[in-house]
Design a protein around this nucleic acid. Structure first.
Lengths: 405, 405
DNA sequence: TTGTCTTTGTAGTGCCCTACTACTTAGCGG
DNA sequence: CCGCTAAGTAGTAGGGCACTACAAAGACAA
């Protein structure tokens, strides 16, 4: 092959690793190993990483002196033989992140440590129909109040937005619930205010990071977090890394599952969202003469179904199948063994979860589901309320620690 | 968050980076930078990597002495000012890989260097209806013949199979065209024969690697290679890494695009393959009374269409749309800017390609297609014939060089 | 109480690798 | 021949892990 003209991809700069970066990367790995597995002694870490204890000792020493880790009370080994190891765990003020979760009607802020403890949190209302400046000032004020105590301790601030975010600049590209946020230079303004590095992420992305660092997917390298409600979003981790293109948006809710289906609000045909969103649920409920006084949600649907309403049971089954179709596509494509559900669908509880799981299994090859992989697990998020907040903190950790050497 | 019980994911071992690994990784990055961009001087490399020239000098020195790189004739810089740089490029016998491409009816072998030059190649027939032992012995003999000259120079052997392969063991899990290969311990037997480390990959995976190292996607970090013919397969690179779950198969051809569609041979409903495979093409042609004496292929279909056959034109449009639906899903999900097509569809030429591209654009959001991303590009593979062979070699390079530090 | 066994944590040295500075080499043009 | 620019190279410094040997801490038995 002649070394002639080449296609000019948007080039990722080639990186040469220096000794100092090795140190940073190794410290980060120790931190992540602890986050994944809980408190461990130096000897435990040495076994896991397959390096001499002395090496771990020196890495840990720097983490201890910088305040990331603390030594616990020595604990005798399981078989009672040998010197007790000293468990290492995060200090209460280690790896502090500022977390901001912007929702359509309010802003929630928190300070979170590396162990995932929420040290403080507050809520702030966003007035309806507010200008860009109005929304931004609510967010900035919320940040100023929440963070002013620990401002110099914060390693970073994470911002979870219900919006499409440009990965390079952090700029909001599109935001249905709060259109005012588009082009608001939010990251820059937060950094100007706080002097703390700030990372802006789409909310569903933070869900995956939050589950990975602090939640049900701790230590799990291959899984997806899905948010299913008014719309559908997903973030996938594969090999411990988020799936994200250098540029452009992930719109799994607008992938086609129904060639000859309904036209979606986005203009395309047969999007997954056209058959598995709250809108579909309400529209179909009306067609089936299922009426609930407030707007129908998966939660209310399941209440009806479990109270014996046949039509509601039928609708719940259809909804489960429609949700499952998109999930099954994800599983067929990427062979993900774990999926964590967030959003309104969580209100459907075990009733809905089991039906979705069965439907996904029915729509995927057995190889992914049984055999060596173990069971395919579809889980409901345990902490759906705080998930984005923890996720925002997790994105700070990922940013600071994941030296992708 | 209390460090209590954790889910036990199939754990990726935590790795600590040593100084020696830094050296290997940096040498690998220099090699890849050259493969991506063509011959470069040390100073060029230093600019690209943003490190001092002296550092590059020392890295290059070891690559020169180990025979990977050679110095070319010094070439004066573009503006004629300053000392001419010495271009570095792969030696003709640098990074030799053995490549084996197993097809349903034959085995093709080759020796390929790091520049992607095929130094020698041969074909061997596989007799019809052969036992496991029969197929294996054809492959082993082919390897023995092709490689016995350069056996100790080979950095590895790459094997591209039309089969689902277990990522950990290299064992064939399923193989429709050659069922005899299942459980044949092919990798082990090749390694026993040659004493050279061997990597076994599904053919479509090697296509992506081949395009990345030697083909149209050189230097491109985000793209997909698709094989569209009797079935549909895809391999995706994101951020320069292959998308692959730790375990389990990627079956994008069996993702659902048609909720209420036909039953697929795999047992699921509305798989992409049910509307975009050669089988669909032939079945629909019969329904439309389009007849060709031998079996219909995209190539023959386009010949009919361009010769004025209205029915064939209509069928080609439908085929393009059906192919586009699945590609559009991929683009919506992962925002891939480049897609390279392999397989029978390549026979459809520009006529078919442009129709597929238009249909994909019509089924994706403008954001991915225009704007900062640049145009969405759907390309036909230029070297479809040798693609898997080069891909097999590329998978060896990826394996030997991609120290995922 | 003491010695043995096992395991944990730590010095201290050596090696690998990149960063940095200063120098040599090489071509061009006046 | 000199000045200018850029490429390539010693040689030293420093960061960081590997390795070996050793001290420390508990369990247990003589």
């Amino acid at each position: 092959m002649e070394p002639g003209s080449r296609p000019s991809g948007p080039e990722r700069p080639t990186v040469i690793i220096s000794a100092a970066e090795v140190g940073r990367a190794n410290r980060a790995r120790i931190v992540q190993a602890l986050a994944d597995r809980g408190p461990l002694s130096r000897a435990d870490l040495a076994r896991i990483t397959n390096v001499p204890r002395a090496t771990i000792g020196s890495i840990v020493k720097s983490l201890l002196s910088s305040g990331w880790l603390e030594e616990g009370q020595p604990r005798p080994p399981a078989d009672g033989i040998g010197k007790p190891g000293t468990p290492l765990w995060f200090g209460r003020h280690a790896g502090l992140s500022g977390a901001i979760h912007v929702q359509p009607r309010r802003v929630v802020t928190a300070v979170v440590n590396a162990a995932g403890d929420i040290l403080s949190t507050h809520r702030h209302k966003i007035p309806a129909r507010t200008s860009t400046e109005g929304v931004v000032s609510v967010i900035l004020n919320a940040a100023a109040q929440e963070f002013h105590h620990d401002m110099d301790e914060l390693t970073g601030i994470g911002l979870a937005l219900p919006a499409a975010v440009d990965r390079q600049t952090g700029e909001v590209m599109a935001c249905t619930p709060l259109p005012a946020l588009v082009g608001s230079h939010l990251r820059q303004r937060l950094e100007d205010l706080t002097q703390v590095p700030t990372v802006v992420e789409e909310d569903v992305t933070t869900l995956a990071l939050g589950q990975r660092w602090f939640g049900q997917a701790r230590g799990v390298d291959d899984f997806a977090a899905l948010q299913i409600g008014d719309g559908i979003g997903a973030a996938v981790m594969l090999g411990g890394h988020l799936l994200r293109s250098r540029v452009g948006l992930s719109e799994i809710g607008h992938t086609c599952v129904d060639l000859r289906g309904q036209k979606c609000t986005c203009g395309l045909i047969g999007c997954w969202e056209t058959v598995a969103s709250n809108n579909w649920l309400r529209h179909t409920a009306r067609q089936l003469d299922i009426t609930t006084s407030p707007k129908l949600t998966p939660h209310r649907l399941v209440r009806l179904a479990t109270s014996g309403d046949k039509a509601a049971q039928g609708l719940a089954d259809m909804y489960a199948i429609n949700v499952a179709v998109g999930i099954a596509n994800l599983v067929q494509f990427l062979a993900l063994p774990v999926l964590v559900l967030h959003g309104d669908i969580v209100g459907g509880g075990e009733y809905l979860r089991s039906r979705v799981e069965q439907a996904v299994i029915a729509r995927t090859f057995p190889a992914h589901v049984s055999g060596r992989v173990g069971q395919l697990e579809i889980q409901l998020a345990h902490n759906d309320a705080d998930a984005c907040l923890l996720g925002a903190a997790a994105s700070v950790l990922s940013r600071t620690l994941h030296i992708h050497v």
